[in-house]
């Protein structure tokens, strides 16, 4: 392969790797948004916590890497359930101003709690994978990157199937469309809320735990992740799953290619510009709800 194509392929591979993570995080956010009608500004904190808990389990408690990942997700989900019962339950009929301010408060709270618990320095989760890179015709990757891509892609598929095929998923989608009629046909909105929130948190935590192997997590990570997830959700259409998946991959690729062929300082601006364009020309996003 010529050098130009190799480099292009490398950028595309980088884009897919990051894009899968964006998609996974945005799926959770769009789920919480669709079911609960809450723009969860603390969503990125679940990613951060997933990474930190996994780091803690592997690095400080010496747990096996593959056991630590699901355990980290479980611990974050447990925390999410506590938050749902103590705080989010009260936000059901609350005005948007209240729900947003509370989630902003929660994101500051979780970030600073992490700072107190684990300190400010970024941490990478030690992985058992060999660090030697693999080369395919000059395009480089590592076993860890491939593992990340495989896990995030698999979780996206699993999430999609859960929402499409299971009774709970169908009930959730019904709640998306119309809360009152969902309640009328006997769907317990309370339980739907709890599941949606736990599910959203789980996806973000899983992304954090997996990516934490090569992108160090720090307490402040959550903020930028939340922002990126919001960008994806607005691009894809608020409350749309397909939109979150496609939007996530698109953003990952656009950032990788944009940074690859423009001054890298503007990388983060690509998504932001896209949001403003979408808002001007297609306010409902690229995909409709559900």
């Amino acid at each position: 392969m010529s050098a130009t194509i190799t480099i292009l392929a490398q950028h595309l591979l980088n884009g897919v790797l990051i894009g899968c993570a964006y998609a996974l995080i945005a799926m959770g956010l769009t789920m919480i948004f669709g079911v609960m009608n809450i723009a969860n500004f603390a969503h990125g904190e679940f990613y951060m916590l997933g990474g930190f808990v996994a780091f803690y389990l592997v690095s400080l408690m010496g747990l096996d890497y593959f056991a630590a990942l699901p355990l980290a997700v479980a611990i974050v989900v447990a925390l999410a359930i506590v938050l749902q019962h103590s705080i989010f339950r009260r936000l059901r009929e609350a005005p948007m101003m209240t729900t947003t301010l509370v989630t902003i408060g929660l994101s500051i709270l979780l970030e600073n709690a992490a700072l107190l618990l684990w300190g400010p320095q970024p941490q990478s989760i030690p992985t058992p994978f060999p660090t030697k890179p693999l080369s395919f015709f000059g395009v480089y990757t590592t076993p860890l990157y491939l593992f990340c891509m495989a896990v995030t892609a698999a979780l996206i598929v699993v999430g999609h199937v859960l929402i499409r095929r299971t009774r709970m998923g169908k009930a959730m989608r019904a709640t998306f469309q119309n809360k009152e009629s969902a309640a009328l046909v006997g769907i317990r909105i309370d339980r739907i809320y709890a599941y949606a929130f736990a599910f959203g948190a789980a996806l973000a935590a899983a992304a954090g735990a997996v990516l934490g192997g090569f992108i160090p997590v720090e307490p402040a990570t959550g903020g930028i992740i939340t922002l990126k997830a919001f960008v994806v959700v607005i691009l894809g259409g608020m409350g749309s799953f397909v939109g979150a998946i496609v939007g996530g991959l698109l953003l990952g690729l656009a950032e990788a290619l944009g940074a690859g062929y423009m001054p890298t300082g503007w990388k983060d601006a690509i998504g932001f510009f896209a949001v403003i364009l979408v808002l001007l020309f297609r306010p409902e996003g690229l995909f409709k709800r559900v």
Binding site: A3, I7, H11, N14, I18, I215, G260, P263, K267
Partner: peptide
Amino acid sequence: EFFQQSDLQFLSQITKVKAAN
């Protein structure tokens, strides 16, 4: 090439640098 103060993922920049051989 440059990266930002908040960046912890540098794949795009590294790939660009690599392209310059």
